[in-house]
Structure formats: C-alpha cells, structure tokens
Amino acid sequence: MTPVPESHYLIFSLILFSAGIFGALTRRNALGVLIALELMLNAVALNFVIFSRTAPEGSASGQVSAFFIIALAAAGAAAGLAIVLAVYRSRKSIQTDDTNLLKW
C-alpha cells in the first residue's frame, strides 16, 4: 500500500490549528476559547509527531515534545479554568464581552 503522504497529515494539522485560531478569536464563551486553545496546542503536538516520522533513526524528540505539549496543555487548561472560575465568581458570567473593565 502506498503510505499516506506527509502533506495530508500536515494539512489536517493545519485545519485543526486554523479551527483553533478561529475559535479563540470568535467564541463568546470563555470555556469555548479555552477549548479552542487546547485544539491549537494539540494541532501543534500533531505537527511534532508528523515530523518525527521523518526524523533520524533513534531520535524520539518529536514524540517526546508531544508529551511535553500535552502536559503543558493540561497545566494551561488548569490555570485558565481557575481564572474563568474567579471571573465567574466576581462577574457572574463568563461571556468574553462582559469582562471589559480594562478599557478606555
């Protein structure tokens, strides 16, 4: 069987990343923004794994980076959720357009 060309994987990763950006910039719900950010991070992790395929033999740096990113994403998600929780406690809402005090 012919192997799946690398470009297909990369396009898939790109689609995931773009979806993540789109979501980060347009979601009204703060949790939605966090989910989108997670999506972006996972797309990046996928990118690392893709390139590890064509890495030199014995080097597992791509896959190790993927693990790093998963851990990072978890920590980031935890911190983000803590902030969302604090915002909810004080503003009673997690819509992004409600947290606009720091303006002109």
């Binding site: 606009n100 303006k103 002109w104």
Partner: peptide
C-alpha cells in the same frame, strides 16, 4: 487612540496573533 483599549479580550488576542 484610546479606543484601541476596547476591554474586549478577544481583540487583544487578535492583536497578539
């Protein structure tokens, strides 16, 4: 110029990107 500070988080995110 002040109007750039809209207070809207997603605008800031856009600017960062």
């Amino acid at each position: 110029f002040r109007k750039i500070q809209s207070g809207f988080i997603l605008h800031y995110l856009l600017a960062a990107f």
